[in-house]
Amino acid sequence: MIDVSTTPATNKTGPASRRRTYRPNAQYIPVLATLSLLIVMYTFGAVSYENFTHPSVLLNLFTNNAFLLVVAVGMTFVILTGGIDLSVGAVIAMTSTVAATLLQAGWPAGVVIPVVLLVGGVLGLGMGAVIHFFKVEPFIATLAGMFLARGIALLINQNSIPITNEFWTSIAETRIVFEPGVYISGMALVALAVVAVAAVVLAWSRFGRNVYAIGGNADSALLMGLPVGRTRIGVYTLSGFCAALGGLIYSITTTSGYAGHGTGTELDAIAAVVIGGVLLTGGSGYVLGTVLGVLVLGMINTIVNFASLNSWWARMAIGVLLFAFIVLQRLVTRKAK
């Protein structure tokens, strides 16, 4: 007879409980760092520039970056599974062009919106299917998606197409005005709604948890009987959908469709996600972090504007921040091991 009740239990809880204390903190470190950075930047702006503390500055961060926020949320899901989606910028171009073209052809807005979202979702679905079924690297598959989407946009029309549809122009003007000059646009509210839904899905749905599981260890997830294929394809579909929604928002705020829209958006989205503390290898991070990441990018641009600096300073600053946060990620994961 082997007595098992005593020794092993003492063996194992010892080291475990010792480590328990700092561990939960480690998961929040990146998000907290981003938050403090945001506060520091805001304080810097407030001290250095007149009018920086005006409430419109903060609200405009959301209004101006609504499309990026939506795209970055989709990207968050993809990166949480350990993948990447390079096609989002091109999907913005494609969807804005398609929307503008259809509206010009006299289609009603109520039809155009679902069609455009469907197009984005289907492209994502296709990329996800190629990634999953043929084990093609996400990097390459979404690169193909990027070429395809941008190419289709250019084939449809190489010029900027103005949108005159009433619905479009009217929602572009929709805003909640707090006081004169201080408002939040309807599109920003749409973006925030997307954020809220995404946060709930990630924390409280099986799909969301499966996303984390796949990012942690896809092989294990498969052996644990999780629907890895469905989840992975779902994530890219979601990202395609978000990018299409981002494209719609872009076309609404600019009231135009153009194949040149969204150039480099994939980089901004990835940067926002990384600065927001989502681990690039997958499995760890929060939508809230991504929101903070987008706000940091927006804040950089705002400060560069206030300082009337050239826009390349913003690129440099984003590069430096990326570096800092990536090193931080490195340190945190190293400690966890």
Binding site: A203, R206, R209, A213, G216, N217, D219, S284
Partner: peptide, 25 residues
């Protein structure tokens, strides 16, 4: 060990069949 080490112990035991109410874990 074929589990997902980034998730909690409880989640590793229940993932894929988490108790839900109104679709919420």
């Amino acid at each position: 060990v074929n589990l997902c080490a980034n998730l909690s112990v409880a989640e590793n035991i229940f993932i894929g069949r988490q108790p839900r109410r109104f679709g919420r874990i």
